[in-house]
């Protein structure tokens, strides 16, 4: 009975305040879309970092079947060549710059590749043979990359030495800047949303002050009086958050999935499914927003 009563109160509140409720939905929608966009950029950065990025700085790729580098004239790197490279890495001249290194076989490389490019059609056309084996080196000082590069580039069986960080760092810093901008806009929009929800609840409380006054007099509990107002804000915010989640999914599906991944097939993009892990966070954030603003408002305008 009480639940039915609260629900009917919510219904009438939403109807009476339709214009305000729609504006709350739109403002939370826009602000949470920006929050989500920042989250998506971070997800994308993680995706591009792949398996090795946080662990090592420099990769020494060994020759494989299709290698065209001058050092690979003799075909794929032999086990002997691999052993000599390993010895060289362990020799005092090199070891003083190296924290640690790992060998990635062709099969390992294929496994990691599959993980990183799981959302891309390219994964079906690649076989382990096409991927080079490599030594992945964790440098004591990443700036000393040149030393490793000079030492190993000319060795037999080495296709190329790459400082992965340098390649990606620029891109990542741009993306980080973009997510910072998105977060700042989101911050402003969230303030808007909180104030707007507070105003909406205040208007709603004002338009129903007769009812709430009578409810107080006949001894309705605080929960019965205030819950409809709180839930009105929460419902509007959750709808906004759901719209934002839908928008992010659509961006991942149509923009990244259909357009970008065809233009840049060698880049690992996040899948639409991955954006959905942002949805609970956004909805939670919407609920928290509505909760904060209703707490602030009800304490002042709807005392019991």
């Amino acid at each position: 009975m009480r639940l039915a009563f609260v629900l009917s109160e919510i219904g009438s509140g939403l109807r009476r305040n339709l214009a305000m409720v729609i504006s709350v939905i739109l403002v939370t929608f826009v602000s949470l879309t920006f929050v989500g966009a920042a989250g998506m950029l971070q997800l994308q950065i993680n995706q591009m970092k792949g398996y090795w990025y946080d662990k090592v700085q420099v990769a020494i790729f060994l020759c494989s079947d299709g290698s065209t580098a001058p050092g690979c004239a003799t075909g794929p790197a032999t086990p002997e060549q691999e052993d000599s490279l390993r010895k060289l890495l362990q020799s005092p001249a090199v070891a003083q710059y190296v924290n640690d290194f790992e060998y990635e076989s062709k099969d390992d490389a294929y496994k990691h590749f599959k993980e990183q490019f799981s959302n891309s059609p390219i994964v079906d056309s690649v076989t382990p043979d096409q991927l080079p084996a490599s030594f992945r080196i964790n440098m004591k000082d990443p700036e000393k990359y040149e030393i490793i590069s000079e030492t190993f580039s000319s060795q037999a069986g080495v296709e190329t030495v790459i400082d992965q960080r340098q390649l990606l760092e620029r891109l990542f810093s741009a993306m980080n800047a973009a997510s910072l901008v998105a977060v700042s806009i989101a911050g402003v929009m969230i303030i808007c949303a909180i104030l707007l929800i507070a105003t909406t609840i205040r208007l709603s409380a004002f338009s129903r002050r007769r009812e709430t006054g009578i409810m107080r007099l006949v001894g309705a509990s605080k929960m019965v009086i205030q819950l409809p107002f709180i839930l009105e804000g929460v419902i509007a915010a959750v709808i906004g958050a759901a719209l934002a989640s839908g928008t992010l999914w659509a961006v991942a599906h149509f923009f990244l999935g259909e357009v970008m991944s065809k233009q840049y097939p060698d880049t690992a993009f996040i899948s639409p499914g991955q954006t959905l892990i942002l949805a609970p966070a956004l909805i939670g954030l919407g609920v928290v927003l509505a909760g904060i603003s209703s707490l602030l408002t009800l304490r002042r305008y709807l005392r019991v």
Binding site: R2, F5, I214, S221, V224
Partner: peptide, 18 residues
């Protein structure tokens, strides 16, 4: 409450306390 009938006005006091 102007939009509620006599019955609903009286019933309101009972509804809100469950």
């Amino acid at each position: 409450l102007p939009q509620k009938t006599v019955f609903a006005n009286v019933a309101f006091a009972m509804q809100v306390i469950g």
